[in-house]
Deep mutational scan, measured.
Amino acid sequence: GIDPFTGEAIAKFNFNGDTQVEMSFRKGERITLLRQVDENWYEGRIPGTSRQGIFPITYVDVIKRPL
């Protein structure tokens, strides 16, 4: 089901994660935001896939912030 505490964002740019914990994505992908890790990073996942990880806040347009 849908978790009411998650947020939502759209990727503004392609992001290629450097490490296992970073999640790569392509511009235009819809991302579920799980939490804000710190002032620069979100943790999120791509709905319908097993992809999950952290990524820079500046790479996405936030539609709804996670609670």
Results as ranks from 00 to 15, higher is better:
residue 1 G to E: 12
residue 1 G to L: 12
residue 1 G to V: 12
residue 1 G to K: 07
residue 1 G to N: 13
residue 2 I to L: 13
residue 2 I to S: 15
residue 2 I to G: 15
residue 2 I to R: 12
residue 2 I to T: 14
residue 3 D to N: 12
residue 3 D to L: 13
residue 3 D to C: 14
residue 3 D to A: 11
residue 3 D to H: 12
residue 3 D to E: 14
residue 4 P to N: 14
residue 4 P to H: 14
residue 4 P to L: 14
residue 4 P to M: 15
residue 4 P to D: 15
residue 5 F to T: 13
residue 5 F to I: 10
residue 5 F to R: 09
residue 5 F to W: 15
residue 6 T to S: 12
residue 6 T to R: 10
residue 6 T to Q: 13
residue 7 G to A: 08
residue 7 G to W: 15
residue 7 G to F: 11
residue 7 G to L: 09
residue 7 G to N: 09
residue 7 G to I: 10
residue 8 E to A: 09
residue 8 E to V: 13
residue 8 E to G: 04
residue 8 E to I: 14
residue 9 A to H: 02
residue 9 A to R: 02
residue 9 A to L: 05
residue 9 A to W: 05
residue 9 A to C: 09
residue 10 I to F: 06
residue 10 I to Q: 05
residue 10 I to C: 07
residue 10 I to E: 05
residue 10 I to L: 08
residue 11 A to N: 00
residue 11 A to C: 04
residue 12 K to I: 13
residue 12 K to F: 04
residue 12 K to R: 11
residue 13 F to E: 13
residue 13 F to G: 07
residue 13 F to K: 12
residue 13 F to S: 08
residue 13 F to C: 14
residue 14 N to L: 04
residue 14 N to A: 08
residue 14 N to R: 06
residue 14 N to Y: 05
residue 14 N to W: 05
residue 15 F to K: 02
residue 15 F to W: 08
residue 15 F to L: 02
residue 15 F to M: 02
residue 15 F to R: 04
residue 15 F to N: 02
residue 15 F to E: 00
residue 16 N to T: 13
residue 16 N to W: 11
residue 17 G to H: 03
residue 17 G to A: 13
residue 17 G to Q: 05
residue 17 G to Y: 02
residue 18 D to G: 14
residue 18 D to N: 14
residue 18 D to C: 15
residue 18 D to M: 15
residue 19 T to V: 07
residue 19 T to A: 11
residue 19 T to C: 10
residue 19 T to M: 09
residue 19 T to F: 08
residue 19 T to N: 13
residue 20 Q to D: 15
residue 20 Q to I: 14
residue 20 Q to E: 15
residue 20 Q to V: 15
residue 20 Q to T: 11
residue 20 Q to R: 11
residue 21 V to R: 14
residue 21 V to E: 15
residue 22 E to Y: 12
residue 22 E to S: 08
residue 22 E to P: 02
residue 23 M to I: 06
residue 23 M to N: 00
residue 23 M to A: 02
residue 23 M to C: 03
residue 23 M to G: 00
residue 23 M to R: 00
residue 23 M to T: 01
residue 24 S to N: 07
residue 24 S to Q: 05
residue 24 S to K: 05
residue 24 S to F: 04
residue 24 S to V: 03
residue 24 S to L: 02
residue 24 S to M: 04
residue 25 F to S: 01
residue 25 F to C: 02
residue 25 F to N: 00
residue 25 F to H: 02
residue 26 R to L: 14
residue 26 R to F: 11
residue 26 R to H: 11
residue 26 R to K: 14
residue 27 K to P: 05
residue 27 K to G: 04
residue 27 K to W: 05
residue 27 K to R: 10
residue 27 K to V: 11
residue 27 K to S: 08
residue 27 K to A: 12
residue 28 G to N: 06
residue 28 G to L: 03
residue 28 G to S: 04
residue 28 G to E: 03
residue 28 G to I: 01
residue 29 E to I: 02
residue 29 E to Y: 02
residue 29 E to L: 01
residue 29 E to V: 03
residue 30 R to C: 09
residue 30 R to K: 11
residue 30 R to P: 06
residue 31 I to W: 01
residue 31 I to C: 02
residue 31 I to S: 00
residue 31 I to N: 00
residue 31 I to F: 01
residue 32 T to S: 09
residue 32 T to E: 15
residue 32 T to M: 11
residue 32 T to G: 05
residue 32 T to L: 12
residue 32 T to I: 14
residue 32 T to K: 09
residue 33 L to N: 05
residue 33 L to M: 06
residue 34 L to H: 04
residue 34 L to M: 09
residue 34 L to F: 06
residue 34 L to P: 00
residue 34 L to I: 13
residue 34 L to T: 08
residue 34 L to E: 04
residue 34 L to R: 03
residue 35 R to W: 10
residue 35 R to T: 06
residue 35 R to C: 09
residue 35 R to L: 07
residue 36 Q to K: 11
residue 36 Q to I: 10
residue 36 Q to T: 06
residue 36 Q to N: 05
residue 36 Q to A: 09
residue 37 V to N: 02
residue 37 V to P: 03
residue 37 V to L: 12
residue 37 V to C: 08
residue 37 V to K: 05
residue 38 D to Q: 06
residue 38 D to T: 08
residue 38 D to S: 11
residue 39 E to A: 12
residue 39 E to T: 09
residue 39 E to H: 10
residue 39 E to D: 13
residue 39 E to V: 09
residue 39 E to G: 11
residue 40 N to T: 14
residue 40 N to C: 14
residue 40 N to W: 13
residue 40 N to Y: 15
residue 40 N to R: 10
residue 40 N to G: 11
residue 40 N to A: 10
residue 41 W to E: 02
residue 41 W to K: 05
residue 41 W to P: 00
residue 41 W to V: 05
residue 41 W to Q: 06
residue 42 Y to G: 04
residue 42 Y to K: 00
residue 42 Y to S: 03
residue 43 E to L: 13
residue 43 E to S: 07
residue 43 E to M: 11
residue 43 E to A: 07
residue 43 E to W: 12
residue 43 E to P: 00
residue 43 E to K: 05
residue 43 E to G: 03
residue 44 G to Y: 01
residue 44 G to W: 02
residue 44 G to S: 00
residue 44 G to E: 00
residue 45 R to V: 10
residue 45 R to N: 08
residue 45 R to F: 15
residue 45 R to I: 10
residue 45 R to K: 12
residue 45 R to A: 11
residue 45 R to D: 02
residue 46 I to G: 01
residue 46 I to Y: 01
residue 46 I to P: 01
residue 46 I to E: 01
residue 46 I to Q: 01
residue 47 P to T: 10
residue 47 P to R: 09
residue 47 P to H: 10
residue 48 G to L: 07
residue 48 G to R: 06
residue 48 G to H: 08
residue 48 G to M: 07
residue 48 G to V: 02
residue 48 G to W: 07
residue 49 T to K: 04
residue 49 T to Q: 05
residue 49 T to D: 05
residue 49 T to E: 06
residue 49 T to P: 02
residue 49 T to W: 02
residue 49 T to H: 03
residue 50 S to C: 12
residue 50 S to Q: 11
residue 50 S to Y: 09
residue 50 S to T: 13
residue 50 S to M: 12
residue 50 S to D: 13
residue 51 R to C: 05
residue 51 R to P: 00
residue 51 R to D: 02
residue 51 R to K: 06
residue 52 Q to P: 01
residue 52 Q to G: 06
residue 52 Q to W: 10
residue 52 Q to E: 08
residue 52 Q to S: 09
residue 53 G to C: 02
residue 53 G to F: 02
residue 53 G to V: 01
residue 53 G to R: 00
residue 54 I to K: 07
residue 54 I to R: 09
residue 54 I to G: 01
residue 54 I to C: 07
residue 54 I to A: 04
residue 55 F to T: 00
residue 55 F to G: 00
residue 55 F to S: 00
residue 55 F to V: 07
residue 56 P to Y: 02
residue 56 P to G: 02
residue 56 P to Q: 03
residue 56 P to T: 02
residue 56 P to H: 04
residue 57 I to S: 08
residue 57 I to E: 07
residue 57 I to Y: 05
residue 58 T to I: 14
residue 58 T to D: 13
residue 58 T to R: 11
residue 58 T to Y: 11
residue 58 T to Q: 13
residue 59 Y to D: 03
residue 59 Y to E: 03
residue 59 Y to P: 00
residue 59 Y to K: 06
residue 60 V to C: 06
residue 60 V to H: 00
residue 60 V to P: 00
residue 61 D to S: 10
residue 61 D to G: 05
residue 61 D to A: 09
residue 62 V to C: 05
residue 62 V to W: 06
residue 62 V to N: 03
residue 62 V to H: 04
residue 63 I to K: 06
residue 63 I to C: 08
residue 63 I to H: 06
residue 63 I to Y: 07
residue 63 I to F: 07
residue 63 I to E: 06
residue 64 K to L: 08
residue 64 K to H: 08
residue 64 K to W: 07
residue 64 K to A: 07
residue 64 K to V: 09
residue 64 K to P: 07
residue 65 R to A: 15
residue 65 R to T: 12
residue 65 R to D: 12
residue 65 R to Q: 15
residue 66 P to T: 04
residue 66 P to G: 05
residue 66 P to H: 05
residue 66 P to F: 03
residue 66 P to W: 03
residue 67 L to N: 14
residue 67 L to P: 15
residue 67 L to H: 15
